[in-house]
């Protein structure tokens, strides 16, 4: 429970946009009834809300949508064309998934020192530089598979700082040479 001198400033923006939980909402409301400083701040946040809530340019969106639908039409025949090779492709994809599963299971069997994430900040910190053009989504999948958590980044030079729980995690990253250009312990 918040004491009288504590100002819930970090919650005020969400008080203004109306998304606080009912408990937080009542807490802030009670505080505002006796705090001029926070009440004034709410007034200013409402002014910011009005300014930030400006509509986007319809002409740009209209053009973007027409381009999207044009490109979609040129590719959609592929999506609709249910041909004989699709079951074969599905079977091949399934085989890849099974192989990946077996590999992951083997890795998990070798590691007995994983700890639940978020309980304790242990492990070794590495700096990682990914190749140019590597997709953020692929980076996240790789880091997840290595049980690595991002501490910071990408920084100005594109460096990520990640925390690894054990050596096996590093091995997973080191083997991903198609994604990682450089990895170094801090």
């Amino acid at each position: 429970m918040m004491n009288k001198t504590e100002h819930p400033e970090d919650l005020l923006p969400w008080y203004v946009n109306g998304t606080l939980s009912s408990e937080e909402q009542s807490l802030v409301s009670a505080h505002l009834s006796s705090c001029d400083r926070c009440s004034q701040e709410v007034e200013l946040l409402i002014s910011i809300q009005k300014v930030a809530n400006e509509p986007v340019d319809d002409a740009v969106l209209d053009m973007a949508q027409r381009r999207f639908m044009r490109e979609l039409n040129s590719t959609s025949t592929v999506k609709k064309d249910k041909t004989w090779w699709q079951p074969v492709f599905a079977a091949a994809a399934m085989l890849v998934i099974v192989v990946q599963f077996v590999v992951i299971m083997n890795i998990e069997q070798e590691t007995d020192s994983y700890q639940p994430a978020g309980i304790e900040q242990t492990g070794i910190v590495y700096q990682i530089q990914f190749h140019d053009g590597v997709k953020e989504q692929d980076i996240r999948i790789l880091l997840q598979s290595a049980n690595a958590s991002i501490i910071d980044g990408p920084g100005a030079l594109g460096l990520y700082r990640v925390r690894l729980d054990n050596k096996n995690s590093k091995d997973v990253l080191v083997s991903a040479t198609h994604l990682i250009q450089h990895i170094e312990q801090e």
């Binding site: 946009n17 109306g18 998304t19």
Partner: peptide, 8 residues
């Protein structure tokens, strides 16, 4: 916060 009105 203010345009999408999303919770934290």
């Amino acid at each position: 916060v203010f345009f999408e009105e999303l919770s934290y």
